[in-house]
Write a protein that binds this DNA or RNA. Sequence first.
DNA 1: CATATGTCCTGAGAGC
DNA 2: TGCTCTCAGGACATAT
Length: 299
Amino acid sequence: MLSRRTAFHSALHISNSNMPELPEVETMVRGIQSTMLGRIIRDLRECPCDCRPLTLSPGFSQMARRAKGQTVTAVRRVAKRVVIDLSSRESFIIEPRMTGLMLIADPPDREHLRLEWRMAGDGPRQTQSVWFWDRRGLGVVRLCDADELDRRLGSDSLGQDALLLTELGWREVCQRTARPIKVALLDQKLVAGIGNLYASEILHEAHISPLRPATKLTRDQVQRLHEATQRVLLDAIKHEGSTLGDGTYRNALNQSGGYQNAHRVYDREADQCPTCGSGKVVRIVQAQRSTFFCRRCQR
DNA sequence: CATATGTCCTGAGAGC
DNA sequence: TGCTCTCAGGACATAT
């Protein structure tokens, strides 16, 4: 797939990988749910691969031993992680990070398959597997007890989920930092689930400048931020996430998402602003990350 | 405490 | 053509 970038505005080329954020991880969870929920893990397998081994905690053999024979009691999303709860009261935490995918169908390629959960068949259903695939191998899979789960995903480590935050919650979040609002949106301790792509899209939808210090947002702007977050993230989930650039992100059936077609500013540098029609989308860098916005309709 | 920076990794594109 | 360099960014460790 071709990126919208052209030679003309590629002074700094965005070779977008996938960076699964809240909508993509939600799509992964929904995609593996029926294969795993209520079923028994027959075994866990490490896929043979030449790349650097995936980060597993604990190591593979202990993880496999503890997972084997357990029933999956829940498959859920926590911020940008997939959590698989087991009858033993332990849980898998899967962090896809940049290029990780959860699959129930053929992968984009076989050499970057990392882990396989083989689920025991149940009545007419035959054995089915769920795979973790990760091209760059930055992903992490953990199996942890309730204490570790809380330590890693509890409120000391993560802010409220972006979709659960109320308008009042947003007001409190914005009072907690003077950093630019775009940078604040990326801080998972303030609000969890938003990454670089959706931060630009949400602020555009809310007509707020990414440069504005969080503490300086007006009450109206905070209200718009709350509403824009709901609209953008729910719409992105409806379209099963964004697949762009090199096309890494796929749903559990190895199909592209559709939300990239709705992006208004992300990776659209130098385009005419689709919202006000007269400004141009610009790219700036904040905290070493690209930000895209329209100076004319985002204040 | 708040904030900033370095690190991991691969594949694509640019430049020579 | 084929090499080397740069860059994308999620989460976390470490530094200021």
